[in-house]
Amino acid sequence: MERSYLELREKVEKKDKGLREKVKSLSEAVALIPDNVHVAIGGCHYSRTPMALIWEIIRQRKKGLTFSKSITATEGDLLLVAGTTRHIITSWFSPGVTWGVSRIMRHYVQSGEAQYEEWSHMSLGLRYKAGAMGVPFLPARSMLGSDVFKRLSNVKEMSCPFTGDKLALVPALNPDVAIIHVQKADPYGNAQISGFPFMDKDIALAADRVILTTEQIIDNSEIRRTPDRTDIPFFCVDAVVEAPCGCLPHECYGVYEPDFNHMDMYVKLMMEKSVDGVKEYLDKYFYGPETFEDYLDLFHVKDIVKATLSAKKGYGG
C-alpha cells in the first residue's frame, strides 16, 4: 500500500483549497467514496466513531473497502457482515473487555474470509503520523522481536546510523479517505475536537480526502475567536455533514456517553446468534430506516437522556 511521495503531493495540490462551503448531505458525502479504496476511521474503539458515515457506507453497499482504525469496536462487526470489507488494519478488535471477544471478528478471521492486519497501537499511530508528515516511514523501539512484527510484510528493521540501536521502521499510511466525527465544525471544514484527540489530526492530514460529520455546524466567526482549539484545518476537508448523535450507540465526548443498554443488546445478539444476529441488527437499524434521523428514532429517549446527562459532567466526572 506504499504510495509515491509525488503522487501523494499531487492529490493535495489538486484539491480546491479555497475557503468555501462544503456542507453536504450524508448520502452526497458518502458518494465521494469509491469502491476498493482505503478508508481510515477516526475516533478509537467506541469513542467518537463516525457511525452516521458508516451507516451510510453500508447502506450504499460499498464494496472492497479496506478500513484502518486505531482500535475497532462494533462498527467492525457491522462492516464485515454487510460485506463492505474483508480487510481491516487495526491494533485491537472487539466490543470491550467486559463484553468478551467479538464472535464476528472470530468468524471471519478464523475462517480466512477476512484479514485482520494487526499492528501495535503506537506503530499504527506512527504510520498515520508519517503519512501526515510526508515522510515514508518513522522509526520506533516497539514491536521488535515479537510475532506481530514477523507476521507483517511491510515493516522493516534497521540499525540507527547515529547510535547503532536496532529500530523498527513503520511505513507511512496515507488513506484514500478519512472519515471523522467531531463536536464542532464550520461550513468550510475547520474542526474542533473535544476530549481525546486520538489520532484524528494525523489521519486527516495523511488522507487524500476527508469527510467530516459534526454534532453541530458552527459559524466561521466562532472558529476565528478560538483558532487555538481548531484541530483540523479547512483545506484538508472535502465534505462537512451535520449529524447530531452521529456516533450512537458509541460515545461523543462531552455530548453523550455510550448508550450502554443498546450496546448490551447488540453484544447479546451478536454473541448469541453471530452473523445471523448482526444481519438482524443491520436489517432493523441500518437497512430499515429511511433516514439517519429514523435510525436515531429507534433508540430509547430515556437511554439517550441518561447518556447525555452523564456526558455533560465532562472531565469533572
Partner: peptide
C-alpha cells in the same frame, strides 16, 4: 487458521516493548 482469534495487541506490545 487459528482455533481462536483473540482481540490483539492494542497498546500491549508497545507497553511490553518499552
Amino acid at each position: 487458521r487459528p482455533t481462536v482469534r483473540l482481540p490483539g495487541t492494542g497498546g500491549g506490545n508497545d507497553i511490553a516493548s518499552l
